[in-house]
Simulated scan of single mutants.
Amino acid sequence: MNTLVKLTLIASAMLASSSLLAAEKGLIAIITPSHDNPFFKAEAEGAKAKAQELGYSTLVASHDDDVNKQNQLIETAIARKAKAIVLDNAGADATVGPLEKAKAAGIPTFLIDREINKTGVAVAQIVSNNYQGAQLGAEKFAKLLNGKGEYVELLGKESDTNSGVRSQGYHDVLDDYPDLKMVAQQSANWSQTEAFSRMETILQKHPNIVGVISGNDTMALGAEAALKSAGKTNVIVVGFDGSDYVRDSIINKGNIKATVLQPGWAQAQMAIEQADYYLKNGKAQKEEKQLMDCVLIDESNASKLKVFNLSE
């Protein structure tokens, strides 16, 4: 038997062994919003990588912020006897019932990024400290604007708890600046396309704005595109998430000057690790509600950011 054949047989045996291990440990369902948003894509990829590293097979799917689609995916996970579900949910209230059904079927759930409005249903709710992060972003925004001028706020999806928490964090800082005046506040539903359209309309009514503070990076990018299209390269934008696209705008001195990193990759991997612990030990590794602090990203550290992870 030649060396090439031996290596092929060894590789095949290793692959078979790995597949058998995954089959023995079972399936973990990973459900997030649309992967068109790089943050949610990073969550899904981070969770999948960690699950496979620990020997699980995975079912990765997107609910696209559609509650009915999310419920169907949870039903699929139950029908396929998943060992656990890792979920970035489609609604703080609407998700409670489906997760209660999963719990009744003996399937533990681990929430990331977004909370639900009930405790005791999921094993863990691992979320970014959105309020703390929003305050970091607002403080930077106020500093960039020298504490004065007209500004716009773009809100996320109104059914998403994070949208309200971030907005509250922004205003608990910005409202203390008497010379900062919010002239428009509109929801763009976390969407880049909607943010572009909203900003085009807002600029027609308020051409003298000096800043835009956004509930996420995707909307910040839409706002930046509209500002550039209108020739307003001096209007300052601050986002929230810590995406690579916004990092590039910061580095290349675009309209976006800062964002707030929420560690999506780390959260997703932590959820898988805690699911693995729960499945091995029959109990939660940590308390249900877990907050991870956010980090301000600006010109001083943007070059260290990659896939929602900040290198040392």
Rank of each mutant, 00 (worst) to 15 (best):
T3V: 12
L4F: 14
V5T: 15
V5K: 15
L7C: 09
S12I: 10
A13H: 08
M14P: 13
S19G: 09
L20F: 13
L21C: 12
A22Q: 14
A22V: 08
L27V: 01
S34E: 06
N37G: 03
P38H: 04
P38M: 10
A44D: 02
E45M: 15
E45R: 14
A49V: 01
K50L: 10
E53H: 15
L54E: 00
G55A: 08
G55M: 09
Y56N: 03
L59Q: 10
L59R: 06
H63G: 04
H63L: 08
D64S: 14
K81R: 15
K81Q: 15
I85T: 04
D93H: 10
V96K: 08
G97F: 11
G97N: 09
P98V: 01
E100A: 11
A102Y: 04
A104N: 11
T109M: 04
I112L: 11
E115D: 13
I116Q: 10
N117A: 09
T119V: 08
G120E: 07
G120N: 07
V121A: 13
A122D: 01
V123Y: 14
I126H: 03
V127E: 09
Y131G: 07
G133S: 07
Q135Y: 04
A138Y: 09
K140Y: 02
K140P: 01
L144M: 06
Y151G: 03
V152M: 02
V152L: 05
G156F: 07
G156L: 05
G156H: 04
E158H: 13
E158S: 12
E158W: 12
H171E: 10
L174D: 07
D175W: 08
M182C: 11
M182P: 04
V183M: 02
Q186P: 11
Q186S: 13
S187D: 08
N189V: 04
F196S: 04
S197N: 15
E200A: 13
E200I: 10
E200L: 11
Q204I: 15
Q204P: 05
P207Q: 09
N208R: 02
N208K: 11
I209A: 10
I213H: 03
S214G: 02
N216I: 00
A220Y: 00
L221W: 02
E224M: 05
E224N: 07
A230P: 02
K232F: 01
K232P: 04
K232Q: 06
N234I: 00
V235R: 00
V235S: 00
I236Y: 01
F240P: 10
D241N: 05
D241A: 02
D241Y: 06
D244C: 02
V246M: 00
G254L: 07
N255K: 04
N255A: 04
A258N: 02
L261V: 00
Q267W: 06
A268G: 06
I272L: 06
D276L: 05
Y278S: 13
K283V: 13
L291I: 06
M292G: 10
D293I: 00
C294V: 05
A302Y: 00
S303N: 12
K304S: 06
K306M: 12
V307I: 13
F308P: 06
S311E: 12
